[in-house]
Design a protein around this nucleic acid. Sequence first.
RNA 1: CGGGAUGUAGCGCAGUUUGGUAGCGCAUCUGGUUUGGGACCAGAGGGCCGCAGGUUCGAAUCCUGUCAUCCCGACCA
Length: 574
Amino acid sequence: MKASNMFAPTLREVPAEAEIVSHKLMLRAGMLRKTASGVYTYLPLAWRSIRKIEEIVRQEMDAKGGQELLMPAVQPAEIWLESGRWGVYGPELWRVKDRNGRDFCLGPTHEEMISIIFRNDMRSYKQLPQLWYQIQTKYRDERRPRFGLMRSREFIMKDLYSFDLDEAGLAKSYALMYDAYSRVFTRCGLNFRPVEADSGAIGGKGSHEFMALAESGESAILYCDTCDWAATDEIAGREPLPVTAEEMLSIEKVDTPDCGTVEDVAKFLHVPTNRIVKTMYYQADDQLVIVLVRGDRRINEIKLQGLLGCNELALAENADLEVHGQKVGYLGPVGVEGVRIVADAEVPLMFNVIVGANDGERHLLNVNYQRGDFRIDQVADLRYLEEGEQCPHCQGHLKLARGIEVGQIFKLHTKYSDSLHVVYAGEDGQEHPVVMGCYGIGIGRTLAAVVEQCNDADGIIWPMAVAPYQAVIVPVNDREPELKEAAERIYAELEADGVEVVLDDRQERAGVKFKDADLIGYPVRITVGAKALARGNVEVRLRKNGEMQEIALEGLTDWLKAYIEAEIAAGSCK
RNA sequence: CGGGAUGUAGCGCAGUUUGGUAGCGCAUCUGGUUUGGGACCAGAGGGCCGCAGGUUCGAAUCCUGUCAUCCCGACCA
């Protein structure tokens, strides 16, 4: 490709809409343009990288026995009604009508589609297992698209679905995908971590997310500084640590004026917040529920919702509580009747705690569950883990990091085979539900994550495997015919040898070309200048570390091909 | 969904308070001088001032509505 003819409109200034570095750089490098909120056009450079990522994904899926197919983006409502998700999915499901008023949606995912395809043509246990995947544009009408490709409404996704005879088969498929995903993200040059995760709206039990570590990541993850355990903060949990027994003192009621929060109470009474039990009223569907948690903990609503099995969950409105004669800030579990009380697992182990008194601006001291001072209907892990806590699996301590979710793998079990009646005939001649798994990779998000991790003040630093081009040739002065000719010769030779190379033949000063080369992030820059050329050499500069060396013209192709190969094998951009 | 902000040339912005011929930088085009890290001089082109309505002799500017975009938040008792 000659730069004079390349559609890569680089920008010197950053469009005001971009907030994070990957978005800014992809706009500036002339890779990406916005068409609507959360909807983007991939310009040629981005598309080349996208295709490389897709190709890596294809190779790794195929290596595990995956078979690629392509399903429609537009899906009829019927299949979503059949699975029951038409009603559950909410406004993020991008619903459209055809000219006859029939309901469709733009597929956010393809469990229904693939299940039905399977159901229509697969019959026997002899045909299992199957691994089917597609790379397809998908749609989620996000409440808040942001950060360019990081959270967009139209996005490219690889989804693989596994169909197995039984749980053991699923475990095998899941393990294959876990391995494939690790290989994909390693090859893409990402610094990532697989973490235990919640399976969310997709459903099913058992899931890992693959997180590219980045400050700008939207997910918080906890990982152990000693063992290799890691999980999203949404599901991370642990057994409560044993508590040293204390003598149970008698309850006292004390005035605590103007103490609306745990911090206020702790300060006022000169006690640590972990001596207090927080009492939170939740509205779970149409039921009021009390949730108890240690004062220094945060309630994890995802866990709570899982426990309660409700669709809607929100803190009760202050007004609702006042109807019950309750004052926010002074709530407690003692003496409460007629409301279900659930407690985080730490709560029943605590001694002599402080709780709201349900009586004006007062709190109770020395309340003990183990003495029967209050009732708990159900105990469960309901809180977030905090940085610095002991690891659930070893003596290590937890660290908190942020990550970009680039992939997620789920065990669906029989969730969809049950609702959509996807069965096979077993050896016993009986119908059995197919045991399914699904495995997604955000292709565009992976690209954004790479840029997010691989950049410096000058621009992008592509890992070789996903770089739009592997090298750029910069003739330093195009008035001198010998430089221009040399550059053309090198270009022709490299192209002929299969190197993905750009010749920057634009009528620009060297500085402009250098700046653009750094911004676009070609891993290798070959500078053709008079002095080196007189020695029969060119200058080669590596984008990742700025190292410069002179290489003889006759050995250039071999050197470059070896370097490219080594870099692709190495993966990382660093 | 709630809150905040912003829409003026491809990009970044000024002009809006106090209504009076739409500006600056970058980018683009022409000519010249330059030429190893975003050159300089001279000239040129490019605008439904987001859209609709209203007030006014006159609206980018005031009023009303609307659309779009971005950010923050989504309840910790």
